[in-house]
């Protein structure tokens, strides 16, 4: 049995990094999910490449440490192979909205039954702090010495638009709130997405700004339009919480109902018979 969620891997995140908050929230969420009846061995993790990805080595859970930008494709394959598994995929903002943006859009579009948690620090920290898809205009990094000249992507409104059925924003500095979001996201049937605001103490230290602006949503907004309005960043307020949740058929069920490719693997004898039937059945 998996005794503990920690591993022997040495943690190399910078002291004070927002990633610690996310790791702690995940550990707490896994315990709650177990209490809710989701077995730990059914929780499968994946991650992209970047500071966020190191969480793969720090969690004693089975999974696949994927490529930069590709983990959302990887986990959809895992889910399709064995729909009984519950998927938590950790991605970075550069990972999900730069290199791999097509995958997150299509995963949401087809309502793949997976949970995607974005460690959104608005910079490519592991490669020394270049501007990223969610960097604010004017962000100064080694590749943008005079400031970024592009506007940022808003992950929350983007994911709502393309069909995600659970869209939330969390903050690495509010661990209990984030824990609840993760539990809700994993329990949601369909594509669930949490954009986690994650300060990078070295390259993009946003603790002060976030601590001043963060406001927890009192409830899920009543309408889609209201959710979009609230999710747009306003200079003075930065709401966190579940923005949108709806129910839609999930991809693997639409594709093949209750069939489970791993469990229902057709044996050799049956295959031989079916091939014979096919060969003899048509001219």
């Amino acid at each position: 049995m998996v005794e503990t969620l920690s591993t022997a891997a040495e943690n190399t995140w910078c002291p004070g990094c927002g990633n610690f908050g996310i790791l702690n929230a995940v550990k707490k969420a896994v315990k709650t999910l177990e209490e809710h009846g989701i077995q730990r061995d059914h929780l499968i993790i994946s991650s992209g490449i970047g500071c966020h990805g190191k969480i793969f080595d720090y969690l004693n859970l089975s999974g696949l440490y994927s490529l930069h930008g590709r983990s959302i494709a990887t986990v959809q394959g895992i889910k399709l192979a064995n729909p009984e598994l519950k998927i938590i995929d950790f991605v970075g903002d550069g990972d999900a909205f730069g290199e791999g943006i097509s995958h997150i859009i299509f995963a949401a579009k087809r309502n793949a039954d997976i949970t995607v948690i974005t460690h959104d620090n608005g910079t490519y920290a592991l490669t020394t702090g270049q501007f990223s898809p969610t960097s604010v205009r004017g962000f100064k990094g080694p590749s943008t010495p005079t400031g970024a000249i592009e506007d940022p992507i808003n992950p929350v409104t983007l994911l709502m638009e393309v069909g995600a059925t659970f869209v939330a924003r969390g903050y690495a500095g509010k661990i209990d709130h984030l824990t609840d979001l993760i539990v809700n996201a994993v329990e949601h049937e369909g594509f669930s997405f949490i954009d986690v605001l994650q300060p990078s103490v070295v390259f993009h230290d946003t603790y002060k700004e976030y601590n001043e602006q963060i406001e927890i949503l009192e409830k899920i907004p009543d309408s889609y339009d209201e959710a979009v309005r609230l999710a747009k960043r306003n200079e003075r307020k930065l709401p966190i919480g579940i923005f949108y949740q709806t129910s839609k058929p999930v991809f693997h069920r639409e594709l093949y109902g209750d069939w489970n490719p791993v469990k229902n693997h057709v044996n050799k004898k049956e295959r031989v018979e079916k091939i014979r039937k096919y060969i003899e059945g048509e001219p």
Binding site: L64, T74, Q76, G77, N82, L85, H103, V262
Partner: peptide, 16 residues
């Protein structure tokens, strides 16, 4: 790109 990465994920869970 998604094709190949999904296929890899699917082998992790045990499908051919």
């Amino acid at each position: 790109i998604a094709v190949a990465n999904m296929a890899i994920g699917a082998t992790f869970a045990g499908t051919r």
